[in-house]
Nucleic acid binder design. Structure first.
Lengths: 205, 205
DNA sequence: AAAGTAATGTTAAGAAAGTGACAATACTTA
DNA sequence: TAAGTATTGTCACTTTCTTAACATTACTTT
């Protein structure tokens, strides 16, 4: 199954399926169906079946999907059957919240290092991690072989920080700054902007 | 131009266009083009023109788009030419970061009230706001006529909090908990889950 | 054991979204 | 002023995505 042929929009739904399966598992269920998942997520059952079929046959006709098995398979597909070290730039309020956020662990990610350019922040501890100077981004990330980073600095600094990260060899960036960023095409980027979601909804109000 | 006929996916891109225009404006530009915007956002110029044309003719042939004019128009379309009061449930690390986040102001939103169910948190001040008991969600939201809420509580409590919000008359919810939520069809919901973005990217790594 | 029920895997049709091309228009330069 | 350049508004085409339908398979009940 060559990954190149699978639409990106399908890949984007897999983490949502994975999250739903975790919920079902916590509820004590062993088996689910495309219908149940679709109901829960507001997606048609046909779409879920078709999406999964891009990667193999994970269900049993007449029965449905074994939750823990399908979960494992999705974790392998999404490469989160391992834990990725992630670098965080920005140790302000948002950065602190990100480090203390418990939702990364157990879903494939671990904040391994934090940078900031504010001398008052450097050297301070955030939950086990000592904040390093932004000057060390390149050396530290190279040395630690970190491939994923999060940007949680003010908009004005986001592009220059991103440039440093790219230079350091980062391949994927999660950007919390409310600004678009320019990166080489080989670097993947995702944006977390709550206002985009809010404005999308106010259109309908 | 009847709003009902405009695809939701188009609406979803408007906040991104608006954000880009703000960036251009900060850079001191007065005029932009669909080509420049597309370049900046990684979207084709034809798509941007087509999206905007759903709402009217905002550009001038040969010249491009006046940034401040197009910005104003998008703000009107998205209903953010006003400031919406937003209720926040959850005064933990994430809730604190949300209240202190400066990115809502100036983009149409203001955190107007904060709730938590932890007695240790109730009565505490977060940046001008006093944390109220979650028991007051219904009365307070009704009284203040708040229509938008954010959920920043642990996954296990997210659904019950959401139910309360819906009962209080909330129309749009921004959910920070890493879980899907069930709401009546009249209620709009958006999810902020950083792990979904990360897992989307690790697929390609 | 047979009939009934449930759910997948799979295909084809339909719907939606995106792209390319170009006439019309505005500005710029010689 | 005339020619050249830039860029929108717009349409038709192409590609992509979604949905509906159903044969096949597995389980459940009588």
């Amino acid at each position: 199954m060559p990954p190149t042929t699978i639409p990106d929009i399908v890949i984007g739904r897999l983490p949502v399926y994975l999250r739903a399966l975790t919920q079902f598992e916590i509820s004590g269920n062993k088996v689910t169906s495309s219908h149940e998942m679709g109901e829960h997520l507001g997606i048609s059952s046909a779409q879920i079946r078709k999406d999964l079929l891009h990667f193999g046959e994970f269900g049993k006709q007449g029965t449905g999907y074994n939750i823990s098995y399908l979960k494992e398979q999705l974790e392998v597909i999404l490469r989160v059957n391992q834990e990725w070290d992630v670098a965080l730039v920005g140790a302000g309020g948002l950065g602190n919240a990100i480090v203390n956020y418990s939702g990364f662990r157990g879903r494939g990610f671990r904040i391994a290092v934090v940078f900031d350019n504010n001398p008052a922040k450097i050297g301070q501890k955030i939950d086990d991690l000592i904040v390093l100077s932004a000057d060390q981004i390149k050396t530290k990330i190279s040395k630690m072989r970190i491939r994923i980073a999060m940007v949680a600095v003010p908009s004005g600094q986001a592009q220059s920080v991103t440039n440093k990260l790219v230079e350091a060899g980062i391949e994927s960036i999660l950007n919390y700054a409310p600004t678009s960023l320019t990166v080489p095409s080989k670097v993947r980027i995702h944006h977390i902007d709550p206002v985009v979601g809010l404005q999308h909804m106010t259109y309908y109000m």
